[in-house]
């Protein structure tokens, strides 16, 4: 995991609110929202990629901080 990388909701419209990403986030910063996933506290993201790798819908992407 590279430093200075955090999660981005790259394709929010594709999210089906399944909650899988929420269950694999070690810092508990993701929640299912009204319609799609939401980030509670971006600062706490450690860029571990757990959520991006398991998301069945290509919604999430870890990106460099300056892209977020």
């Amino acid at each position: 995991m590279a430093r200075g990388e955090r999660i981005q909701i790259a394709h929010p419209g594709w999210c089906k609110n399944c909650g899988i990403c929420v269950s694999v986030c070690p810092t508990d910063i993701l929640i299912t929202g009204k319609k799609s996933v939401e980030i509670l506290d971006l600062e706490k993201c450690i860029g571990c990629h757990n959520c991006e790798l398991i998301c069945p819908d290509f919604v999430l992407k870890v990106v460099a901080n300056d892209e977020n």
């Binding site: 394709h11 399944c18 069945p56």
Partner: peptide, 17 residues
């Protein structure tokens, strides 16, 4: 996209991997 698979369907994770 988005694909037609149901919410939480594992097939999307296979495609991702």
């Amino acid at each position: 996209l988005p694909h037609i698979w149901c919410p939480g369907c594992g097939h999307g994770t296979i495609l991702n991997s």
